[in-house]
Design a protein around this nucleic acid. Structure first.
Length: 440
RNA sequence: GCCGGCGGAGCUCGAGCGGCAGAGCGGCAGCCCUUUAAGCUGCAACGUGCGGGUUCGAGCCCCGCCGCCGGCACCA
């Protein structure tokens, strides 16, 4: 809200979620009383006005004000109208001010809203049902990550916040719901940086009688559709790079990628000791586990090559405790990850539906956990029981919604696509300003 | 968790070598009946993140703490 006085005439710029508009208030036509009200109005106030639309001398469409009312008074000064609010910390801590004065922030947040809505529309149109599964769990599984712990007073038991929705959604597949998804908050008690917030939003989706190839097609159509929705085309500008989400996306095998980009062969990766030697060759510190070593190598060797959207498929089974093995190559799984701009956008696989295999993999994980890897979740034996009732062949996918929004809106930090990114609280403090603001 | 950078008025920023802490915007009063970051005149208020130290004297140097950002580690 800006006001420009001109003697007996005042111009106001008013703003709402749809944009800006100019008001024109003239003393001779308003009368002294109303004009006095107009003169009291300052930047940041909320106003209601009535009148008729006209064009000013300079041709700007404006409201010729006949009635005017202050709907809400702003007691605190807004940041500078020209430079706005730059201070990152203040922008995150007082997002409401950021939203008032930095239109770009509002645009991104509305765009996020639109992306998620469009995601739902696309998925619903293909016969899926959105469900809600518990956030509070006895055992948090379905991923490797340290959970947040909490406690139920009523039951007097420890609870953990979920680190994935995977196991419960697959229980629903066992239950015959066939096509389900959840867009929900997930919590991981780990580091915070430009791509990690302790709570983040994931889409997880499961389709009975699909395999990983069906999911790949679904995945690329969904992402291409969202890119079109946001940009009107399939090309997304991200920093210096132009990324084309035109289908089909590039596909490359997990092992083939290492071979092509670094001449590394299958045995060097799938053998634990050979993989450790590779780490050493690349100057990467030794890894506690074989799986960890492969992740580090992938990050160093393959990820830098993945600018345009690329499906990397056929992950080793040792990285994929919940994925089904390939029929003709049981050391690998029917799993892919989608990368774009060197960032992982989704993770999908044909789900393991063999309860005995699942039980053995959980037992293996128990050993890793006993060996001190706190990120390995305790086994969820009831999930094995569920599989024993029979799960149809099923494909599942997880998409990090925040990162997808980052990708589509050209934001480098996850904080810039979250309304209220987590910030450490400041020590309690009362300033004189605050006392004044609260007195009548 | 480790390393580095940063922290000054409501906002955006100046302040050589340690020497009276400033400007613009905003606020207040006034002028101005078509402005576009309105303009002009005048006025006032408020400030070095917190706590110590060195010094005749600290926004500046030293120590500790807090917060944010970036990098590393961890992860998605």
């Amino acid at each position: 809200m800006a006001a420009r006085g001109q003697g007996g005439v005042i111009f106001f710029d008013i703003q709402d979620r749809t944009g800006r508009f100019q008001l024109f208030a003239r003393k001779n036509d308003l009368g002294d009383a109303l004009f006095a009200v107009a003169k009291e109005i300052e930047r940041g106030d909320l106003v209601g006005a009535g009148g008729f639309v006209f064009r000013t001398k300079t041709g700007e469409l404006s409201l010729y004000v006949r009635t005017l009312e202050v709907l809400g008074k702003s007691l605190r000064p807004l940041p500078d109208k020209w430079s706005g609010l730059q201070d990152l910390e203040k922008r995150y801590r007082r997002r409401y001010v950021d939203l008032i004065v930095n239109p770009h922030v509002r645009d991104v947040m509305f765009l996020r809203s639109k992306i998620v809505a469009e995601m739902r529309r696309f998925i619903d149109a293909r016969g899926f049902s959105e469900v809600e599964t518990p956030t509070l769990l006895n055992v948090a599984g379905g991923a490797t990550a340290r959970p947040f712990m909490t406690h139920s007073n009523a039951l007097d038991i420890p609870l953990t916040l979920r680190i994935a929705t995977e196991l419960n959604l697959k229980r629903l597949i066992v239950g015959g719901m066939e096509r389900v998804y959840e867009i929900g908050r997930t919590f991981r008690n780990e580091g915070i940086d430009a791509t990690h917030n302790p709570e983040f939003t994931m889409l997880e989706l499961y389709a009975a009688y699909w395999d990983v190839n069906d999911m790949m097609r679904f995945n690329e159509e969904l992402v291409a559709h969202l890119a079109r929705t946001v940009h009107g085309g399939e090309t997304v500008i991200r920093g210096e790079d132009a990324i084309s989400f035109a289908t089909p996306f590039r596909r490359i095998g997990y092992l083939e990628a290492f071979e092509r980009f670094a001449g590394i062969e299958r045995e060097q990766l799938l053998d634990a000791e050979a993989a450790q030697r590779l780490l050493h060759d690349y100057g990467i510190p030794p890894s506690p586990t074989h799986a960890h070593a492969l992740d580090k190598l992938f990050e160093r060797i393959v990820e830098p090559e993945l600018l345009q959207p690329t499906f990397v498929y056929g992950y080793p089974v040792l990285l994929s405790p919940l994925a089904k093995r390939m029929k003709d190559d049981p050391e690998l799984t029917e799993r892919y990850e989608l990368f774009a701009a060197h960032m992982e956008l989704s993770n999908a696989f044909t789900e393991l539906n063999d309860p005995d295999d699942q039980r053995r993999r959980f037992e293996l994980q128990m050993l890793e956990r006993a060996a001190g890897d706190e990120e390995v979740p305790p086994p969820d034996w009831d999930f094995v029981t569920a599989l024993e009732y029979g799960m149809p062949p099923t494909a599942g996918i997880g998409i990090g919604v925040d990162r997808l929004v980052m990708m589509l809106t050209d934001n480098a930090s996850i904080r810039d696509v979250l309304l209220f990114p987590l910030q450490r609280p400041l020590p309690p403090e009362r300033d004189a300003d605050e006392d004044d603001a609260e007195s009548p």
